[in-house]
Amino acid sequence: MADTAAPAAVKPKVAFYWCASCGGCEEAVVDLAEAILDVVGAVDIAFWPVALDFKRHDVEAMDDGALLASFVNGAIRTTEQAEMALLLRQKSQLLIAFGACAHLGGIPGLANLWDRESIFRQVYAESPSTVNPEGTLPQTRSEEDGRRLTLPGFYDTVRSLDQVVPVDYYLPGCPPTPKIIVQAVQTLLSGALPPQGMVLAPDRALCDECPRKDTRPEKLTTSEFKRPHQVLIDETTCLLAQGLLCMGPATRAGCEALCVRGNMPCSGCFGPTSRVRDHGGKALSAIASIVASNDTGEIERILAQVPDPIGTLYRYSLPSSLLRRRRREAA
C-alpha cells in the first residue's frame, strides 16, 4: 500500500526509555501485539534499550529536538535516570510521562516513607540471610585493582518525571491500558496536539464508567470499612456500598474499571482528575464523606478501620502529593 512514486516521507523518530520501573510499561507496549507492528511501521524507533541495540551515545549525537516524542516510564531515583530524563528532554519535541511511576511516582515512590540510609541498611546489611559483616553499601565509586568502577548515586527522595524536567503529556495507569496507548499515539501522530500538560485519559471519576454504577446508592454511607480478605465480595454491587475501600470516586477514569470488573476495589493507579491536586487527600475526603456518623469518637473508630492509610490512599502518588515524602525526624 506504500506509495512508491512519492519520495519516502521521513518517519517521525520516537524513543522509549525506563527509569525506576518494573518493565510492565514496556510490556504494555509490546502487548499492543499486532498493533505494535503498525506503530513500528509508522515511526522510526530511535532508542529503546529493552528491545533495540541503540546506545546512549546515539542519543547524545542527535540534534536537539530530533525526536518527535520520547515516552519515559518509571520514577526518578538515581542520578543516571535524572541525566537520561534531561538528555531525552533536550532531544525531544514532546516528552510523555508514561505510566503511574513517571506520572505520579508510583509504587517505587512508597520508598519516600523512609530515607535512603535506613533503606540501604535494611536491604544491604540487616535483612536475614544477607552476609555483610563490614556493612558494605553501594558505592558510586569503587577501586578494584587500581581500576575505578562507578555506579549511579541514589537520591534520598523518589520523584515523578515532571519534578525533574518539564513534561508535555501524561499517560496514566499501572500500566496504561492498550486502548489509551493507541489513542495517545494516534493523537500525537495526527499533529492535532491537545493542550500541553494534559493527562491523556478521560477527565472524570472512575465511578462514571463503572459497571456497578447503578448499584451505588444515592446517599452512600457506611458505618464500617471491611477488609477484602475478610469478606466474600458480591460481584455486582458497588464496592463502597459493601463497605470496601474503593478509590473509584477519587480516581480518573479510562481503564474501564478493570479491577472492579475483576471484583477487586480500585487502588487508584490512574491518579486524580485535573481538578484535584492531591490524590490521597481527595480520596480521604471522599471516604470521610461517607462515614455514617457525626460522633467524633465513632468517626475515629470507623476511619481507624482503614489500615495503612498512606500505602492505601497514596499507593501510586506519594512523590507527587503535597507532602512528597514522610518528614525526616530532626536529628
Binding site: 520501573s21 518494573c22 518493565g23 510492565g24 510499561c25 514496556e26 510490556e27 504494555a28 508510583g106 509504587i107 517505587p108 512508597l110 520508598a111 516513607l113 523512609w114 535506613s118 533503606i119 535494611q122 536491604v123 535483612s127 499501572c174 500500566p175 477488609r227 477484602p228 480478605h229 487502588s267 489500615p307 495503612d308 500505602g311 492505601t312 499507593r315
Partner: peptide, 23 residues
C-alpha cells in the same frame, strides 16, 4: 528497595505491591 518499604504495609497488600517489581 521494595524490601525497605514493604515494612508497615498490610500483609494482604504484598502480592499487589511486589507484582510491581517485575512487569
Amino acid at each position: 528497595f521494595f524490601e525497605g518499604f514493604l515494612r508497615g504495609r498490610r500483609f494482604s497488600e504484598a502480592p499487589d505491591i511486589t507484582a510491581r517489581i517485575c512487569g
